[in-house]
């Protein structure tokens, strides 16, 4: 997420500059301020990293569809709008800023116990990516197969018993009746 961090710094600078002079409605970040591509590699293990063309995706979707309320744009989802109807830009806009990688770790699960917490069902990073990407790709005919976005690494092929690790044909096929 190298590029992501750079993006963050820019975003921060812009935010600081803009807040003083602009009325609320103009607070939204401009898409052109965003980086062109982002390498998503924080969880690359079974699959290679994804070169995410951020610029291209801004043509298909508005900021809030992925960034929710964090970019200062008006949130469309009525359930989110209950609280985030007039939300300022956030300091953090990257996915991993809110969606944790170890979503089901004991440590994280404890933080969900706080009685005042509303977001008890916030997806982890892995879920956030896939839920958001795939559901949109289905509508916009984007790629939905696993390897259309990221090819499998050797570790992945091992895990899935595929490629060079495929079961030998007939070797394991038990006699079925």
């Amino acid at each position: 997420m190298q590029t992501g961090k750079k993006f963050l710094k820019t975003a921060l600078a812009i935010t600081l500059g803009v807040t003083i002079i602009s009325p609320n409605t103009l607070l939204a970040m401009a898409a052109e301020d965003a980086p062109e591509t982002i390498t998503i590699d924080s969880m690359a293990n079974l699959y290679t990293s994804v070169e995410f063309n951020h610029e291209m995706h801004t043509e298909y979707a508005s900021c809030q569809e992925c960034h929710h309320h964090t970019t200062g744009a008006i949130v469309a989802a009525p359930n989110c709008a209950r609280c985030h109807h007039n939300h300022d830009e956030n300091d953090i806009v990257s996915c991993s800023g809110c969606h944790v990688a170890n979503r089901f770790s004991e440590k994280y699960l404890v933080t969900l116990e706080k009685p005042e917490l509303f977001h008890i069902d916030k997806p982890g990073l892995l879920g956030a990516y896939h839920l958001n990407c795939i559901s949109c790709h289905e509508v916009t005919s984007g790629p939905t197969g696993c390897q259309e976005c990221h090819t499998m690494t050797e570790a992945g092929e091992k895990r899935f018993d595929t490629g060079p690790f495929s079961p030998k044909a007939g070797k394991n096929v038990s006699e079925k009746h």
Partner: peptide
């Protein structure tokens, strides 16, 4: 696939993909 490796189960008949 994850279950197969975690539980050291026998090799499947067909690849998991």
């Amino acid at each position: 696939a994850a279950c197969n490796k975690e539980q050291s189960l026998p090799e499947p008949d067909k690849p998991f993909n």
